[in-house]
């Protein structure tokens, strides 16, 4: 397995992303290290190859965005929109993540060891998100498909206007959003959760989690609701 490293203190981010997009497939490099990321935006976005990218430091906005097949590990914190619109593969943030982590992800797994900011998993479309810490307000807003595991607490309006995504929460939510409700855990939930926790390297007992899903009362327009939900 060939290893390669890019030092963003001395080489350009565009060159690195260009290499990852266009030259990687003809190459046998399967491990790329990014040094001195220093909060740069768009690190390792749009990958489409089974490659591991280790980012040694703090990443800026949209790191690992649109990821397909690759494994991106950020050994630091991630800015707004980490793994945004991921299709497959894995993005692992060892520190905390800012707002909009995993927004609109269609597939793949986003693991955040620390806390995530507001709007984590907003409009999730099939991806999985495991947060080792807590998430901010409006997380899981309008999430359509996929699963979110929150090992800590959640802010206000968790799962507001949920569609068919499911949220597993270990701590407490400051409040649930409109149409989100606690539901009983089934055997299928326990096994799905155990698998997600194992993939994220966490050993919490699945029995310590609660399931939050949509009550589906917003699925159809109700003219009598007087906009009060």
């Amino acid at each position: 397995m060939e290893r390669l490293s890019f030092d963003l203190a001395s080489s350009s981010l565009s060159d690195m992303n260009r290499f990852l997009h266009t030259e990687l497939s003809a190459d046998d490099t399967r491990h790329v290290t990014v040094l001195n990321p220093d909060g740069a935006h768009n690190i390792a976005v749009g990958l489409n190859q089974p490659v591991t990218v280790d980012v040694q430091g703090h990443a800026g906005y949209y790191a690992g965005g649109m990821n397909k097949h690759a494994r991106v590990v950020i050994h630091g914190s991630a800015g707004t929109g980490v793994a945004e619109n991921m299709m497959s593969g894995t993005v692992h943030v060892k520190g905390f993540a800012s707002n909009g982590a995993g927004a609109t992800a269609h597939g793949g797994l986003l693991v955040i060891d620390g806390d995530a900011g507001l709007r984590c998993g907003i409009s999730l479309k099939g991806g999985d998100i495991v947060v080792g810490g807590s998430v901010g307000s409006f997380s899981g807003f309008m999430a359509q498909a996929g699963r979110m595991v929150i090992c800590g607490n959640a802010g206000d309006a968790l799962g507001d206007s949920l569609y068919e995504a499911v949220i597993y929460l270990r701590g407490e939510a400051k409040s649930l959003g409109a149409d989100a409700q606690f539901e009983d855990m089934t055997d299928a939930d326990y096994s799905a959760l155990a698998e997600l926790l194992s993939k994220a390297g966490l050993d919490h007992d699945p029995k310590s989690f609660k399931r939050i899903a949509s009550a589906r009362s917003l699925y159809h327009w109700n003219a009598d609701a007087n906009q009060e939900y």
Binding site: N36, D38, G39, A40, H41, G57, H58, G60, Y61, G76, S77, G79, G95, F96, S98, G117, L118, G136, S137
Partner: peptide, 22 residues
């Protein structure tokens, strides 16, 4: 506003970095 403005500071790698809550 963003970490990229802090990356040059002395011994930043050992500083406690966090996002202030709303």
């Amino acid at each position: 506003s963003e970490f990229r403005s802090l990356a040059h500071l002395p011994d930043i790698k050992n500083a406690k970095v966090f996002e202030p809550a709303p």
